[in-house]
Structure formats: structure tokens, C-alpha cells
Nucleic acid binder design. Structure first.
Length: 152
DNA sequence: AACTTTTACAACCGCAAGCAT
DNA sequence: GATGCTTGCGGTTGTAAAAGT
């Protein structure tokens, strides 16, 4: 019944990746290309599930990643695209070369959302926060974790 | 200097889409 | 068409580092 969880295997590592694991993953992808994540871990000699390998490669190890701070242009583009597409991070990332969906999502949640709230803009609807405390209650609750009270 | 709180981001989890059988 | 598997996505969590007290 149902799907078999990809990470069920008992002897798979979790948590932060080591330099050696990174090197193994990079070497394997360079040699064989992306794809077939399911079989990659054993083929590359990694004690990780395929899902974890894919995520590590896409979000951290890919050679074409830009990394570093977002430029003002990127910042504005993300806001604009978010107002059009919503939380479709992969679609937004597709329009920002060198950036990943995870990176953009993190950046949104830690920087942009707070900035918009500070300007009195609802980060969900991109409209002014008229009934501030009561509307979009979800985002207000979520905002607490990100320290929404601190507007510099 | 020690402790606490906040921030930033890497990584995990569950779900759904898409494909193969 | 039904079923099962893999991949990809978005939400969420864990934790190291930075900032504040």
C-alpha cells in the first residue's frame, strides 16, 4: 500500500553535509550528469537518500550558482514576480539565473517579507495593510518568528 | 565575559505530478 | 484505468552565527 518512503533506509546520514560527501557528489554528477537520484547514492558511495543528494546539488553544489547577496535589481524582481506568481518559488527562480528556489524562498521569508511589512504592505496580497493586525492573520503570526517588530 | 535572543540559511518532510508498467 | 515509483515543490524546522543585554 502506498509509496515507499525514499529515506526509509536505516543507514542513511542526515543533517549537515561533510566536505567528503560534497566531493563525492560533485565528482559523481560531473562524471554521470544529473538525474537518476534514486540510484545515485549507492553509485556514488554516499549514505544519503537520493532526495537529499538532489537538494544538496541543486541548492549548494551546482557550479552555476551565484551565491552571495541579492542585488537591488534581484530584490525588486522577486517582489514583482511574487506579486504575479505567489509562492511559486521554482517559477520565480527560473527567472533569476544562478538562484535557487530554496534560496529565494529563504530570502523572501527573512528579508523581503519583513521589509514589506515595515512599509505597511501585506507580503501575501501586496496591498496596503489597512486592517493590519487582523487581516492576513497567518502572515502576522508567521512574521513573529522572523522578528517583525524590528523594522530598521 | 557569560548568557539570551534573534537572524540567516541549510536541510528535512510530506505531498502531488508525471511517468512507466 | 489502476497502481507504484521517482522526482520536484513548497512549507517548515534545526542550528550556527551574530547581536543584544
Amino acid at each position: 500500500m502506498g509509496r515507499s518512503p525514499c529515506c526509509e533506509k536505516a543507514h542513511t546520514n542526515k543533517g549537515a553535509w561533510t566536505r567528503e560527501e560534497d566531493e563525492r557528489l560533485v565528482a559523481h554528477v560531473r562524471a554521470h550528469g544529473e538525474g537518476c537520484w534514486r540510484s545515485l547514492p549507492s553509485a556514488a558511495g554516499l549514505l544519503r537518500c537520493g532526495k537529499s543528494c538532489r537538494l544538496r546539488w541543486i541548492n549548494y553544489l551546482r557550479p552555476d550558482l551565484k551565491r552571495g547577496n541579492f542585488s537591488r535589481d534581484e530584490d525588486e524582481l522577486i517582489v514583482k514576480l511574487h506579486s504575479l506568481l505567489g509562492n511559486k518559488w521554482s517559477l520565480i527562480a527560473a527567472r533569476l539565473p544562478g538562484r535557487t528556489d530554496n534560496e529565494i524562498k529563504n530570502y523572501w521569508n527573512t528579508h523581503i517579507r519583513r521589509k514589506l511589512l515595515g512599509r505597511g504592505i501585506d507580503p501575501v496580497t501586496h496591498r496596503p495593510l489597512t486592517d493590519a493586525a487582523t487581516c492576513s492573520c497567518g502572515s502576522n503570526f508567521l512574521g513573529l518568528r522572523a522578528g517583525m517588530l524590528d523594522f530598521r
